[in-house]
Amino acid sequence: MRSRSGFSRSGKPAAGWRGPAGGARNDSDASWISVSDLMAGLMMVFLCIAVAMMRSVMIEREKIRTIAMSYKENQLAIYESLQREFAPDLTRWGATIDRDTLTVAFNNSDAMFDTGEAALSNSYQVVFEEFFPRYMNVLAPFKGSVEAVRIEGHTSTGWGQTSDRNDSYFNNLRLSQDRARSVLRYVYTLDEVTTHHAWMMQNVAAVGYSSSRPIYNADGSENIEQSKRVAFRVITNSETKIHSILEESF
C-alpha cells in the first residue's frame, strides 16, 4: 500500500514515484553530461597544443627566413666587393666572377700549366702574386660569415688519346687535385698573406673535381678551354646556421 509521501509501508520508494521536481531520476543523463565535459576539456587541451606547435613552427620559419635574407645580403656584399676590386683585371687574367657561387675562375689553364703537369707557370705565379693578397683583403671583413674558401681544380673530359672514360676521369682527378694543391701551396708562401695563415689553415682547402663540372657552349658542346680552370670559391656559413636551427627544433 502506498502512502501520500510516496513511500510504501516498508520505507522504500513506491513504483512510479517521481521526485520532488516532478521528473523521473535518470543516472545515464548525469553520466553523459560528465563525458561531454571531459571531451570538451580534452578538445581544449589538444587545441592549445596545436596552437603552440603552429606558433613554434612559425617562429622557426621566421628564423630561417631571416637567415636566408641575411645570406642574400651577405652574398651580394661579397660579390660587389670582389667586382670592385678585380673588375679591371679580369680580362687581362682570363678570369670571371660568378655572382651565384661567389667563384673567381681563372679559365686559361693551358697558360697556367703545361699539358698533364701541375707545376704553376711563371706567368701565372705573377698573376696569383697580384691576385691572392688582394683576394684575402677583400674577404677579411666577411670572415665571420665565411665557412670555407675552396681552391678548385677542374679539367676537360678528355685525356690524351685514350677513349676509356674511366681512365680519363681518374687521370683527370689526380691532375685536378695536384693542380689545386700546387696553387694553394704557392699562394700560401706569399709574404703578403702571412698574417692570414692561421685562418687559411682552418678555412682554405684545395679540391680536385676532375671533369665532373665541365663548361658547355650554347650549342651544348663542351667548352674545353673553360672547362680546364682553377677557381677560388667562397662558401658562407648560412647553411650551417639553418641546419642548427632545424636540429634545435627536434
Rank of each mutant, 00 (worst) to 15 (best):
residue 11 G to P: 00
residue 88 P to H: 02
residue 179 R to P: 00
residue 201 M to K: 15
residue 70 S to Q: 13
residue 217 N to R: 13
residue 186 Y to L: 03
residue 198 A to V: 09
residue 17 W to M: 14
residue 196 H to F: 15
residue 197 H to L: 05
residue 95 A to I: 02
residue 168 S to H: 03
residue 79 Y to R: 02
residue 250 F to K: 13
residue 100 D to N: 12
residue 44 M to H: 11
residue 127 V to P: 00
residue 42 L to G: 06
residue 229 R to K: 08
residue 89 D to C: 07
residue 208 G to Q: 03
residue 87 A to V: 07
residue 164 D to G: 05
residue 154 H to K: 09
residue 88 P to M: 04
residue 146 V to Y: 04
residue 138 V to C: 04
residue 13 P to F: 06
residue 42 L to S: 10
residue 31 S to Y: 14
residue 176 S to T: 10
residue 208 G to S: 03
residue 35 V to S: 11
residue 97 I to V: 09
residue 141 P to W: 05
residue 48 C to P: 00
residue 70 S to M: 08
residue 76 L to S: 15
residue 91 T to I: 07
residue 246 L to E: 08
residue 73 E to R: 12
residue 207 V to F: 07
residue 35 V to Y: 14
residue 56 S to K: 15
residue 40 A to D: 13
residue 43 M to Y: 12
residue 15 A to T: 08
residue 190 L to P: 04
residue 125 Q to L: 01
residue 123 S to I: 08
residue 178 D to F: 06
residue 102 L to D: 01
residue 67 I to Y: 04
residue 25 R to M: 11
residue 171 N to M: 09
residue 24 A to D: 06
residue 34 S to H: 12
residue 188 Y to I: 03
residue 116 G to T: 04
residue 31 S to K: 15
residue 148 A to V: 01
residue 151 I to T: 03
residue 164 D to N: 15
residue 152 E to N: 11
residue 244 S to P: 01
residue 127 V to R: 03
residue 215 I to R: 09
residue 99 R to W: 02
residue 221 S to R: 07
residue 183 V to S: 04
residue 22 G to Y: 00
residue 93 W to D: 00
residue 218 A to C: 03
residue 132 F to V: 02
residue 2 R to M: 06
residue 52 A to M: 10
residue 191 D to H: 09
residue 76 L to Q: 15
residue 61 R to H: 08
residue 107 N to S: 07
residue 206 A to S: 10
residue 57 V to F: 14
residue 161 Q to Y: 11
residue 44 M to G: 12
residue 220 G to H: 05
residue 62 E to T: 10
residue 193 V to G: 00
residue 37 D to Q: 15
residue 103 T to C: 12
residue 28 S to Y: 13
residue 174 R to I: 10
residue 222 E to H: 01
residue 145 S to P: 01
residue 211 S to T: 08
residue 130 E to I: 05
residue 108 N to M: 10
residue 169 Y to L: 13
residue 38 L to Q: 14
residue 131 F to M: 03
residue 144 G to E: 09
residue 69 M to H: 10
residue 52 A to C: 08
residue 95 A to P: 01
residue 3 S to N: 14
residue 7 F to E: 06
residue 240 T to I: 11
residue 206 A to T: 05
residue 229 R to A: 05
residue 231 A to P: 02
residue 40 A to W: 07
residue 245 I to C: 00
residue 90 L to E: 03
residue 53 M to Q: 15
residue 57 V to W: 12
residue 1 M to S: 11
residue 74 N to P: 00
residue 66 T to I: 06
residue 141 P to F: 00
residue 10 S to F: 05
residue 190 L to T: 04
residue 53 M to N: 15
residue 121 S to M: 04
residue 180 A to Y: 03
residue 222 E to T: 03
residue 55 R to M: 15
residue 170 F to A: 02
residue 59 I to W: 11
residue 213 R to T: 12
residue 133 P to F: 01
residue 89 D to V: 04
residue 189 T to F: 05
residue 8 S to V: 09
residue 96 T to G: 03
